[in-house]
Amino acid sequence: MLLETQGLRKAFGGVQAVSNVDLAVLEGDVHALIGPNGAGKTTFFNLLTGSLRPDTGRIDFGGREITALPPQQICRMGIARSFQRASIFPKLSAFENVRVSVLAHEGKSFRLYPRANALARGEVESLLETVGLSDQADQPGESLSHGDRKRLELGIALANRPKLLLLDEPTAGMSPDETRSTMSLVQRLARERGITVLFTEHDMTVVFGIAQRVTVMHQGQVIADGSSEAVRENREVQRVYLGEAGWFWR
């Protein structure tokens, strides 16, 4: 087991955003976390990566407790993330966006010498190639298209050589073509580099297309968890989704 949470809770005011969540992510899995808007998926991610402290409960990663550690430490232990709205460095070029992350991974962020230009070139170039941005290497991040920004953010996350990649709606706002190529990239990364992936997604074709395991959240709680076939057949899941919105089986 790579990641495990026990009794994780987080409330905002009177609202239980995440309520008593136990979740296990197995090493090497592509694991989807689904649920309607407001189910608590993003809050859950924020707890895992240290942006938020849980009210109660604990998080273990690779056999070590990481509950309430600061984000930079959690990242250095091997959890990288992307955000729902691509979070990049707008005025820096795509190349520099990735380089800053490579330098951080190599523990060189505090070096005053030599010039950054003399370091990490090959690594950055191969990462840009992996995410398909070699041609835009010199473009400022802010001038990239929406889909390319998301890919750039994936490149920034990969530069940390993570064991676990948390992707919050990696294809939100992408065209069907972009969605397909992004998800096949994620699948390839999982297979070829052995990266475990936990992602949230609204598009069920994407979810059942690549996830081996699916966890369903509703109103802060886990209501189903299992192999994607089992979850697809689950009655309660069908009731939650079909009862409230028809998009699940769309």
Partner: peptide
């Protein structure tokens, strides 16, 4: 330096 580039990154995000 790597430090300077990382400082820019902090300014940006």
């Amino acid at each position: 330096s790597p430090f300077g580039r990382t400082l820019l990154a902090i300014r940006e995000n």
